[in-house]
Design a protein around this nucleic acid. Structure first.
Length: 624
RNA sequence: GGAGGCGUGGUGUAGCGGUUAACAUAUUGCCCUGUCAAGGCAAAGAUCGCGGGUUCGAGACCCGUCGCCUCCGCCA
């Protein structure tokens, strides 16, 4: 099933072990014995996964990272081994010697890769005992997250977690090989670097040798990889650890791993083509799944918002919102009429078959639940219409009476409504409408069973605006970062109407997550300098922060661009896991804590002295 | 910074004003030679996260606090 050739080579050549060193305790892994090995004398070592003591005969399922093998100890054949094995308990570390044989007729276990054979042990050795684990290693049950994290080393023994970390390794290995073959080299960039004013909050590291100054941990190697392009490396990548001191989420950790890529002499299409090929290959060859859409659909940012309310839409299902402002704005429903008059859009999200055979009461309850959800997303209400199961049934819902028959027919045609559907009307300011569509769409997909973790759907989102207007600061904020190039045809807009200018940015969405994002960069110093006043920075400040970049830009910068992909998220999706913690060996809790080790913790006064740092009590404590 | 949920033997849950705090599983002991979530019998194991309050009486209700989870803000 799996390729263990390297390990097998080591096992096969025991005679090559260094003189004086202990011989390896296993000739085979617990995952590899098959019928063809019958008759072979073997040694296994691992953990007792389960034991079934039948009195005269003991079965041990022995587990190592490669699998589980059943070991049989027969009292009449090997009384000493039987006595010793009788003392074994779950998670004891043992070493056995015995002979492989086919299982007796009718006792094969098809659930197990090694289920056709068993090892008849004549020697068993206890290498180490174990306390009873605080939770099941050998069963998939819910375990309190605190307990899992406190005993993470035991949590990681569970087959599910081992599978996840093995998958993670394979994904990264595959990508490294994929890029290597295409002329990329991996370059490590510093973890101790310079703080940047924009973006996420930095983690700061005090400098002992330069009291009062700080390094920042990188939020991404963005500047450094561009400088590598200036340096002429042309094709760079890095499996890079990145740090952002922001609140954690199910798909966000304080530190995370990013596949960072930068290429010279490329256009947007070149980067996208490479990543698309890579993502398809990883999905198919490593995860054994097939992307639902090949080639990946490309959606403009604006379309993504209009149809899905999100710039990272889940494309495993359709459920696209439809604009009905022209129809509903002419209905007799006062809210729609006035909203349409104020330029607020009216959109319909169709919930296929959700009315179904619901009674009037059930239908109202369903609609109320959806309305509550819509309100939580910012809506003031949620109008709805339900189509009866039969064509001739009345249209149900409080707003039906405000629409003429012709208007209803137009609505049904526009939205593709079928008997049994519920139409959800969303109308408000544009940003609110998007948010509500996104929230309802994800909810409906879950309700309707459209979110199969075994399906995977990628989509490119392109043509992002260069800037968002920051109302508080009264300035433009870059929608990606200040090195993103404008689409060539929109370059003049920088001077006339920056809000309309589109960037050369591309994001890759997958199952409702953003799994990659990048852009073609500015390589012209004059254009780069134009960006700073737009985003409310003085040139003096820009030189302070980015002087090294601006200076580098005077020494022959090739056109370049790149992309960065959140590997934790990607592996999470490929593993079908709902949370990023499941694919990270030692993650943090939502409060940023490592429960096992007790990090973060207070520093010794001596350490603080050396760093010229004085800790003042937090404000909340100071008050009391 | 905010909203919501959860916290009961090792683990997962039930109990929602008065019970001997229940069940499953794990654990320990005994029995058992073809099991594989083994089985049978027995035993042990919880001051119900912590602090305060209401009440004749609190695991339950109220307030606070701590921890974990989900989400909003935040994450160029």
């Amino acid at each position: 099933m799996l390729c263990f050739s390297a390990i097998l080579d080591r096992f096969a050549s025991k005679s090559l072990t260094i003189a004086g060193a202990a011989a390896m305790l296993k000739t085979h892994t617990c995952g590899e014995l098959r019928l063809q090995h019958a008759g072979l004398r073997v040694e296994l070592a691992g953990w007792v996964y389960r034991r079934r003591d039948q009195g005269g005969i003991i079965f041990l399922d022995v587990r190592d990272r490669w699998g589980i093998t059943q070991v049989v100890i027969d009292e009449s054949a090997s009384p000493e081994a039987h006595d010793a094995a009788g003392q074994f308990r779950n998670e004891y570390v043992i070493h056995i010697k015995g002979t492989v044989r086919a299982r007796p007729e009718g006792t094969a276990n098809s659930e197990l890769a090694t289920g056709e054979v068993e090892v008849v042990a004549d020697e068993v050795e206890l290498l180490n005992a174990s306390k009873t684990p605080p939770f099941y290693i050998n069963q998939e049950t819910k375990i309190d997250e605190t307990v899992r994290m406190k005993y993470r080393y035991l949590d990681l023994r569970r087959p599910r977690m081992q599978d996840n970390l093995v998958l993670r390794h394979k994904v990264i290995k595959f990508i490294r090989d994929f890029l290597d073959v295409r002329g990329f080299i991996e370059v490590e960039t510093p973890i101790l670097f310079k703080t940047t004013p924009e973006g996420a909050r930095d983690f700061l590291v005090p400098s002992r040798m330069n009291p009062g100054t700080f390094y920042a941990l990188p939020q991404s190697p963005q500047q450094l990889k561009q400088l590598l392009m200036v340096a002429g490396y042309e094709r760079y990548f890095q499996v890079a650890r990145c740090f952002r001191d922001e609140d954690l989420r199910g798909d966000r950790q304080l530190e995370f791993t990013q596949l960072d890529i930068e290429m010279s002499f490329v256009r947007r299409e070149d980067v996208m083509a490479l990543i698309e090929e890579m993502m398809i290959a990883v999905t198919e060859q490593v995860a054994g799944m097939t992307p639902m859409h090949k080639p990946f659909p490309r959606i403009t940012y604006q379309d993504a918002l209009e149809k899905y309310g999100s710039d990272k839409p889940d494309m495993r299902y359709d459920l696209a919102a439809v604009d009905v402002t022209d129809i509903a704005g002419k209905s007799a429903f006062p809210v729609f009429v006035s909203n349409a008059g104020e330029g607020k859009p009216i959109k319909v999200l169709r919930a296929p078959g959700m009315a179904g055979s619901l009674s009037g009461t059930q239908l109202r309850k369903t609609a109320e639940e959806l309305e509550t959800l819509a309100r939580s997303a910012g809506a003031k209400g949620l109008a709805w219409m339900a189509l009866g199961e039969k064509e001739e049934d009345e249209v149900k819902g409080p707003i039906g009476k405000f629409f003429t028959v012709e208007q209803k027919v137009a609505l049904f045609e526009r939205t593709g409504a079928k008997p049994g559907d519920i139409l959800l009307f969303i109308s408000d300011q544009r940003e609110v409408v998007y948010n509500v569509i996104d929230t309802l769409r994800r909810h409906l997909a879950n309700q309707l069973g459209y979110t199969d973790p075994n399906k995977i759907a990628f989509a490119w989102v392109i043509d992002f605006p260069m800037f968002y207007w920051n109302e508080e600061e009264q300035r433009w904020d870059p929608s990606q970062h200040m090195f993103t190039a404008t689409l060539p045809e929109d370059l003049p807009l920088l001077d006339t109407d920056p809000g309309k200018a589109r960037g050369s940015q591309y994001d890759l969405a997958c199952n409702g997550y953003e799994v990659a994002g990048g852009s073609i960069r500015i390589h012209d110093r004059a254009i780069q300098e134009k960006m700073f006043p737009l985003i409310g920075q003085t040139m003096e400040r820009a030189r302070e922060q980015f002087g090294h970049m601006l200076e580098a830009f005077e020494y022959g910068v090739p056109p370049h661009g790149g992309i960065a992909s959140g590997l934790d998220r990607l592996v999470m999706i490929l593993a079908g896991e709902p949370n990023i913690r499941e694919v990270i060996a030692f993650p943090k809790t939502q409060q940023g804590a490592d429960i096992m080790a007790g990090a973060p913790s207070e520093a010794e006064p001596k350490q603080l002295d050396e760093l010229s740092i004085k800790v003042v009590p937090p404000k909340s404590e100071a008050k009391s």
